[in-house]
């Protein structure tokens, strides 16, 4: 299938990108790796009239180590995230999850930034970022802003990002705690029916949930002691009962709720 027609621009600098987006009166759409957007365009579910390809802008695809965090360029592919030594050292959960997204070819082209900005509640990556307590660095007409991941998603396939803004990077605290990721799928290439990402961050347990509502979901549970799993399960159960997962051919809402609990308790057991 073929997309509807559009204009294409590939700015060489971030400022050039901003000015194109500003001039496009909200018709411009940022193109990262294209692996969420192009399939939708081919099915003509999405019809942006101007595509702003930010892949030619320098400085968006590196992984940087700072004092107490690491910064991942929004244009880093899932393959890079999966293999980066810095990420493997300081945020092993993220590398572990990135290695399971889509398939090998998709991981080479799909980017962490594109995936997050798509705002899909079924995104494994979003779940992992919730669990690690990521901060998103956004730039645009109103200047640089930073969002906690929990403030980023506003609705189904919607984020707080303004059409003229661009996600530049994801900041992750350096964490050395245990992590785990449990994903229930039909086929290995399907979106998760439900997935649970856990990461010990400081004295808390970061939780990211995949496909349990209109947006990606996450929260932090307090860890009193390593042995205290029943208290955690109880806390989780309470939160899980308020979730509103979708019903589709992969599973009903009710099933997803139950599976969130099962996967959460498995993830607790499998923390490494």
């Amino acid at each position: 299938m073929i997309t509807s027609s559009f204009e294409y621009v590939a700015p060489r600098s971030i400022d050039e990108a901003f000015s194109i987006l500003r001039d496009s009166d909200g018709e411009g759409k940022v193109l990262a790796g294209g692996h969420s957007l192009i399939p939708l365009m081919k099915l003509r579910f999405a019809r942006p009239s101007i595509l702003v390809d930010i892949s030619r802008i320098d400085g968006l695809s590196g992984v940087d180590e700072k004092d107490d965090f690491i910064e991942i360029g929004a244009m880093c592919s899932h393959a890079v995230v999966a293999r980066s030594n810095l990420i493997r050292e300081y945020s092993p959960l993220l590398a572990h999850v990135a290695a399971q997204i889509g398939d090998a070819a998709i991981r080479y082209r799909g980017t962490i930034g594109g995936s997050i900005c798509h705002g899909d509640p079924a995104s494994d990556m979003a779940g992992a970022l919730f669990a690690t307590g990521a901060v998103l660095v956004v730039d645009g007409p109103s200047g640089k802003r930073e969002f906690k991941i929990e403030d980023f998603f506003t609705g189904f396939l919607e984020t707080t990002l303004d059409p003229e803004e661009i996600l530049l990077a994801i900041k992750l605290p350096k964490v050395s705690g245990k992590y785990s990721f449990e994903k229930l799928q039909r086929r290995s290439i399907d979106w998760a029916i439900v997935a649970v990402a856990l990461n010990q961050v400081g004295d808390g347990l970061g939780v990211g949930l995949v496909n349990v509502g209109p947006t990606p979901v996450g929260f932090k549970l307090s860890l009193t002691s390593d042995e205290d799993t029943s208290a955690l399960l109880e806390q989780f159960s309470e939160i899980a009962s308020s979730l509103t997962p979708p019903s589709d051919v992969f599973g009903s809402s009710e099933y997803r709720k139950e599976m969130a609990k099962v996967l959460f308790s498995r993830a607790l057991l499998n923390l490494v």
Partner: peptide, 16 residues
């Protein structure tokens, strides 16, 4: 139809 693409229809992969 609710399974009208390869993303929805359970066409198995090698991993199954």
């Amino acid at each position: 139809p609710l399974t009208a693409t390869f993303a929805d229809y359970g066409f198995p992969t090698a991993a199954e």
